[in-house]
Design a protein around this nucleic acid. Sequence first.
DNA 1: ATACAAATTTGTAATCATTACAATGCTATT
DNA 2: AATAGCATTGTAATGATTACAAATTTGTAT
Lengths: 140, 140
Amino acid sequence: MDITFENLKQELKKKNIGLSYQRLKVLEYLIQNRCHPTVEQIFTELQKDIPTLSKTTIYNTLRILAEADLVKVINIEEKEARYDIDTKDHGHFKCESCGAIFDFPIDIDSLIPEDLSKFKINDKNVYFKGLCPGCLYNNN
Amino acid sequence: MDITFENLKQELKKKNIGLSYQRLKVLEYLIQNRCHPTVEQIFTELQKDIPTLSKTTIYNTLRILAEADLVKVINIEEKEARYDIDTKDHGHFKCESCGAIFDFPIDIDSLIPEDLSKFKINDKNVYFKGLCPGCLYNNN
DNA sequence: ATACAAATTTGTAATCATTACAATGCTATT
DNA sequence: AATAGCATTGTAATGATTACAAATTTGTAT
């Protein structure tokens, strides 16, 4: 299923999550900004539309969306969480020079070892770090 | 190369890292406690041996060991970092019920897609979350 | 051994993302 | 319009980590 605003609204309804203006704005932002934004980024941008916006609302909304599996939390950094509207399995690469986070395809399931056959896996994360082609080229 | 106290001491010398009592104690603790301990755990335990020990020393030591690639930082949790003396590639599974972290073998390199051929990969992490066999059995 | 410089440790204070909580505001239903 | 329940807001608390400066230890040259 495609990640469209309408589809996600359906999902929220299906899961009995109220479609408040703030929540829809957060969703909209995540759909349009696939750069794995931080709470700070989302807050700063949406504040332009909603002057009374509280950062707590962003935290609440993201927690609810994550619990409903509509958003994936990315803990690739030590300090600040990032959020991804794409919940399908894929890897993340963080450039240690420019800080950008890149998606890459990865077939995680094909590598799950026999050792885990008795475990119930709810969440799979593959994080790489290093230097992206641009920074390598510029010797950053 | 095996992970022994003596081998690690050699590594420290080779990298011009002073072999202070505190640093050796941290290494010793990590070798003997492969449960991916937190700073708090390491500090609490070593304090018994070194009453004047400061938590800052644990942080400093772990940062130095990690920079020297003698220890791997595990950011599988949101808040607290964990540390692993085993720097060879392997996956980590965190049980969301009991909190235990399990190692599992995984051939990460075979998964790296063509898309990343122009990236320099310095660090690879595979983190799963879910329920371990024990907790599944006990319906935790 | 002594003195000195450099490295290391220590303790306190600051930082900063996240969470707790209570008060206010909004929405839907009757 | 009244009410109840949910959502938002703002402030204060939490807690891991870092900054920093003083004190201690270590290594080295004399």
